[in-house]
Simulated assay, not measured.
Amino acid sequence: MRDYARTVLEDADSPRVQINSDPNHYAKWEAPAVAVTAALTAPCNAAAGYSPQNGTEPGAWGGYSNGRIPESQLAPIPWASGEHLRPDAVQALVAMNAAFRQAFGYDLPINDSYRDYASQVQAKRIYGDEAAPPGTSNHGWAMAIDIGTYTHARISYDSATYAWLSANAGRYGWVNPPWVVQGGSGPHEAWHWEFYGVA
C-alpha cells in the first residue's frame, strides 16, 4: 500500500493519476482487507487432505512424505519471494503479518519456509546439529518458518520482533515450539516458528 502511494506521488505530474494528500489514508483498512481476502481464498482443509487447525505440532498430511510435498499443494508467502507453506499456514501468516506490519511498519522478514528433501540435506551440511536429519524437519511438512530482521538472518530472544511474536503469534496459530525456547531441550532457536493452528 505505501509503496503504491509513493509510486503515485512520484508520478503526480501525470494527469491520469489521482492521488490522496495522505499516502497512509487507507492503511487502517489494510489488515481487515487482508484477513477477509485470505479467508475467502483459503482452500477447504478436508479437500486438501489435512485436518482442520487443532493446536498441535506439525506432522504428516495429505499422504506425502516429509520434504516430498508437490509444489502444487503449497501456497507462496506473498511478500517473501520463493518461500512456500501449506495453504492454511500461509493464510494465518498473512493475517499475522498484517498485524506485525501495523506495529513495525514493514513485513515480517521470512528467510526460510518449506524445505524439500534436497534442501534438508543441504541445511544439515551447513548447520550441523542445528538442523534436523533430512526427512524429519518440520520445515519438510511446509509448516515452519525461520524469521530474521532487516540486518540479521535470525532474530534473538531479546529482540523486539521476538517479544511481539511471543505476545501475539499464538492467536494466529504460530508457536515458538517448547524445545527451541530458552530452557527447552534445544537447539535453542528464537527464529524458528511452527504452525500449530488454533485449538
Rank of each mutant, 00 (worst) to 15 (best):
residue 1 M to S: 13
residue 2 R to S: 03
residue 3 D to F: 13
residue 4 Y to H: 04
residue 5 A to H: 02
residue 6 R to G: 06
residue 10 E to S: 09
residue 13 D to V: 11
residue 13 D to T: 14
residue 13 D to G: 15
residue 16 R to T: 00
residue 17 V to H: 14
residue 18 Q to F: 08
residue 18 Q to H: 10
residue 21 S to P: 06
residue 22 D to F: 11
residue 24 N to I: 02
residue 25 H to V: 03
residue 27 A to T: 05
residue 28 K to L: 04
residue 30 E to Q: 13
residue 30 E to P: 00
residue 30 E to Y: 08
residue 32 P to D: 07
residue 32 P to L: 11
residue 32 P to K: 09
residue 34 V to R: 11
residue 34 V to N: 03
residue 34 V to C: 00
residue 35 A to C: 10
residue 35 A to G: 05
residue 36 V to I: 15
residue 36 V to G: 00
residue 40 L to R: 12
residue 40 L to P: 01
residue 40 L to M: 12
residue 43 P to G: 08
residue 43 P to F: 06
residue 45 N to D: 13
residue 49 G to T: 09
residue 50 Y to H: 14
residue 51 S to Y: 09
residue 53 Q to Y: 00
residue 54 N to F: 02
residue 55 G to P: 00
residue 58 P to S: 06
residue 60 A to W: 08
residue 60 A to T: 13
residue 62 G to H: 07
residue 63 G to A: 02
residue 64 Y to P: 03
residue 64 Y to L: 06
residue 64 Y to C: 06
residue 65 S to P: 02
residue 69 I to Q: 05
residue 69 I to D: 04
residue 72 S to Y: 03
residue 73 Q to D: 07
residue 74 L to M: 11
residue 74 L to G: 02
residue 75 A to M: 08
residue 76 P to W: 10
residue 77 I to E: 04
residue 78 P to S: 09
residue 79 W to L: 04
residue 80 A to P: 05
residue 80 A to Q: 05
residue 80 A to M: 04
residue 80 A to L: 06
residue 81 S to P: 03
residue 83 E to H: 13
residue 85 L to R: 11
residue 87 P to V: 11
residue 87 P to N: 12
residue 88 D to Q: 14
residue 90 V to F: 10
residue 91 Q to W: 01
residue 91 Q to N: 10
residue 92 A to D: 01
residue 92 A to W: 01
residue 94 V to E: 13
residue 95 A to T: 10
residue 99 A to M: 12
residue 100 F to A: 03
residue 101 R to M: 11
residue 104 F to M: 04
residue 105 G to Y: 05
residue 109 P to T: 10
residue 115 R to K: 15
residue 117 Y to V: 06
residue 117 Y to H: 09
residue 122 Q to V: 08
residue 124 K to V: 02
residue 125 R to I: 07
residue 127 Y to Q: 13
residue 127 Y to N: 13
residue 128 G to R: 11
residue 129 D to P: 10
residue 130 E to Y: 15
residue 131 A to Y: 10
residue 131 A to N: 08
residue 132 A to H: 14
residue 132 A to N: 14
residue 133 P to C: 02
residue 134 P to L: 04
residue 134 P to I: 04
residue 135 G to R: 07
residue 136 T to Q: 13
residue 137 S to H: 08
residue 139 H to W: 11
residue 139 H to K: 07
residue 144 A to R: 03
residue 145 I to P: 01
residue 145 I to A: 01
residue 146 D to K: 06
residue 147 I to N: 04
residue 151 T to L: 09
residue 152 H to M: 12
residue 154 R to G: 02
residue 154 R to K: 15
residue 154 R to P: 01
residue 154 R to V: 04
residue 155 I to G: 00
residue 155 I to L: 06
residue 156 S to Q: 12
residue 158 D to Y: 09
residue 159 S to E: 01
residue 168 N to H: 15
residue 169 A to Q: 00
residue 169 A to L: 00
residue 170 G to V: 03
residue 172 Y to G: 01
residue 176 N to Y: 11
residue 177 P to V: 15
residue 178 P to G: 02
residue 178 P to R: 07
residue 179 W to A: 14
residue 180 V to K: 12
residue 181 V to H: 07
residue 182 Q to T: 14
residue 183 G to E: 12
residue 184 G to V: 14
residue 187 P to L: 08
residue 187 P to T: 09
residue 190 A to V: 11
residue 190 A to E: 03
residue 190 A to I: 09
residue 193 W to L: 08
residue 199 A to M: 03
